[in-house]
Amino acid sequence: MTKEQVHEALCKAPDEDKMRLAIACQMNGIDVQDVETGLANVLTGVQKAIKPAIEYYRYLGGK
């Protein structure tokens, strides 16, 4: 998942959730773009980690 995809998903979130994220970032001195980048990196890592399991599943006839 890219940072841009994370940004698009966050933009679609309810306004109250966006405000909570904005306030949390401000209170902790973190740039929201850094949060987006970090989240994209985590999600990409998870995708890479489970890819072999998905391939094994498909190999074993999973749909």
Rank of each mutant, 00 (worst) to 15 (best):
M1P: 08
M1W: 13
M1E: 09
M1A: 12
T2Y: 05
T2P: 00
T2C: 04
T2V: 01
T2K: 01
K3Q: 01
K3C: 00
E4A: 12
E4M: 07
E4L: 04
Q5N: 10
V6R: 01
H7L: 13
H7G: 06
E8Q: 13
A9T: 12
A9G: 02
A9P: 02
L10A: 06
L10G: 08
L10F: 15
L10Y: 11
C11I: 09
C11H: 07
K12D: 12
K12I: 05
A13Y: 03
P14Y: 07
P14C: 03
P14H: 08
D15R: 08
E16D: 13
E16F: 11
E16T: 08
E16V: 11
D17Q: 10
D17R: 09
D17K: 15
D17P: 02
D17G: 05
D17M: 12
D17I: 08
D17Y: 06
K18H: 09
K18W: 03
K18Q: 14
M19C: 01
M19V: 12
R20M: 08
R20C: 07
L21C: 04
I23R: 04
I23W: 03
I23H: 01
A24C: 12
C25Q: 02
C25G: 02
C25N: 00
C25L: 05
Q26I: 02
Q26N: 04
M27Y: 10
M27N: 13
M27I: 08
N28A: 13
G29H: 02
I30R: 04
I30P: 02
I30M: 08
I30S: 05
D31M: 10
D31W: 09
D31T: 06
D31S: 07
D31V: 04
V32L: 05
V32F: 04
V32H: 04
Q33I: 10
Q33E: 15
Q33M: 13
Q33T: 11
D34M: 10
D34Q: 05
V35T: 00
V35W: 00
V35K: 01
T37P: 00
T37W: 02
T37C: 00
G38H: 04
G38D: 04
L39V: 14
L39I: 14
A40L: 01
A40C: 02
V42K: 01
V42I: 14
T44I: 00
T44P: 00
T44N: 03
G45P: 07
G45S: 08
V46S: 05
V46D: 10
V46A: 14
Q47D: 15
Q47S: 11
K48V: 07
A49S: 12
A49N: 10
A49K: 15
A49E: 14
I50P: 05
I50K: 06
I50F: 11
K51Q: 09
K51A: 11
K51F: 01
P52M: 14
P52E: 14
A53M: 09
I54S: 08
I54E: 13
I54R: 08
I54M: 13
I54Y: 12
E55G: 05
E55M: 12
Y56A: 15
Y56L: 15
Y57S: 15
Y57K: 13
Y57T: 12
R58F: 03
R58M: 09
Y59F: 13
L60F: 06
L60M: 13
L60E: 07
G61Q: 12
G62D: 00
G62S: 03
K63P: 01
K63V: 14
